[in-house]
């Protein structure tokens, strides 16, 4: 093992979402300015699924984002960049050696890790959640320099700690997955990439004929929210509602379950291509996101038992139905836009 000191000239920028932040920072390393919302939108990170029969931290599983590694993989594919993903390694040693080789070649490398054993995380983040992403950009003897976009500053981890989080066990185990950009030729062509990204998101959100995914999923959740108090009692309902809000607001969503980031993407691409319809869609998305925020405010009051009598679960359910309709309108609009 080479014991020399390698630290790449990598700029750490804080971001709202871990994976799109990592992707945008990797682009930045190669001298291309791709903002975080742009990476998120092109990589088609927006999603909604509500899976009541799977439980995550003792409450129904709700996801506002796409599967892990989608953002990196699709944004590279849509922009036509030569990138590589290694999905799994057999042993931690093997994966760490591959990481070392990459660093010696001067390639910052992204890794999928589990949150529970990350030593630099504050205690409230350390759940059994295996879809976190970080970028390794340097090493000194036993210490690895880590850029985690949730944190304000770069961090360090020892060899053992990094190997443990890269091989965290449980659902969606990372198995040492790592990814990097090989090289980029010439200018990036944003127009077809944005078009593909939007098309795919529209497909995911309104065209999948399954009632728990996309805008339909929001309506399904709204219907269930009304039934929970009768079925499970008030305490459990309050915890389940808390789970919806936690998935939407906490831990690297940028607020309102990624809706703000997606709106920022629409706004940026609208300004880039001078397209009024995209700007209008960005405005609609922003209003939807603000509505999600209102939902959080009222829901949190409900969780604390401080709500006014008219703010019961029926009203929250109505708000969710309204949000579902608003989102569907945005995607119907995006579907018709010709770029």
């Amino acid at each position: 093992m080479a014991q020399d000191k390698i630290i790449l000239n990598y700029t750490h920028r804080q971001a709202g979402h871990c994976e799109s932040g990592a992707t945008s920072n990797l682009f930045n390393f190669y001298g291309y300015d791709v903002s975080e919302p742009m990476a998120f939108g092109i990589g088609n990170g927006l999603y909604f699924s509500y899976i009541p029969f799977l439980k995550l931290q003792f409450a129904p599983m709700i996801s506002f984002r796409n599967f892990p590694n989608t953002v990196f993989h699709r944004s590279m594919k849509h922009l036509g960049v030569d990138a590589q993903v290694i999905k799994s390694f057999k042993t931690p040693k093997e994966s760490m050696d591959a990481l070392d080789r990459n660093l010696e070649k001067g390639i910052p490398t992204g890794c999928q890790v589990g949150c529970y054993n990350l030593t630099f995380f504050p205690p409230e983040y350390r759940m059994h959640y295996n879809m976190h992403n970080l970028v390794v950009f340097g090493k000194e003897d036993n210490l690895y320099h880590i850029s985690d976009t949730v944190m304000e500053t770069p961090q360090v981890l020892t060899w053992e700690d990094l190997a443990r989080v890269r091989f965290a066990k449980g659902a969606f185990a990372p198995k040492g997955k790592m990814y990097w950009i090989n090289h980029i030729n010439g200018e990036l062509n944003f127009k077809p990439a944005v078009k593909m990204g939007i098309q795919r998101t529209v497909h995911d959100m309104i065209k999948i004929p399954f009632w728990l995914i996309g805008a339909k999923g929001i309506h399904a959740m709204a219907r269930d929210l009304k039934r929970w108090p009768g079925r499970y009692g008030n305490e459990k309902t309050s915890f389940y509602l808390g789970q919806i809000l936690r998935m939407a607001e906490d831990f690297g969503t940028g607020g309102a379950g990624f809706r703000y980031i997606y709106g920022a993407f629409l706004k940026e691409s609208g300004n880039l291509f001078i397209n009024d319809e995209l700007l209008e869609a960005a405005d609609m998305m922003g209003k939807t996101a603000n509505r999600w925020r209102e939902f959080t405010y009222i829901g949190a009051r409900n969780c604390k038992n401080r709500s006014k009598p008219e703010e019961d679960y029926g009203m929250l359910s109505d708000i969710l139905h309204e949000i579902g309709n608003m989102e569907e309108q945005v995607y119907r609009k995006l579907d018709k836009i010709v770029l």
Partner: peptide, 10 residues
């Protein structure tokens, strides 16, 4: 505050 309330709940 709302986010902190729900986190504290968990």
């Amino acid at each position: 505050e709302p986010e902190r309330v729900i986190l504290q709940q968990a």
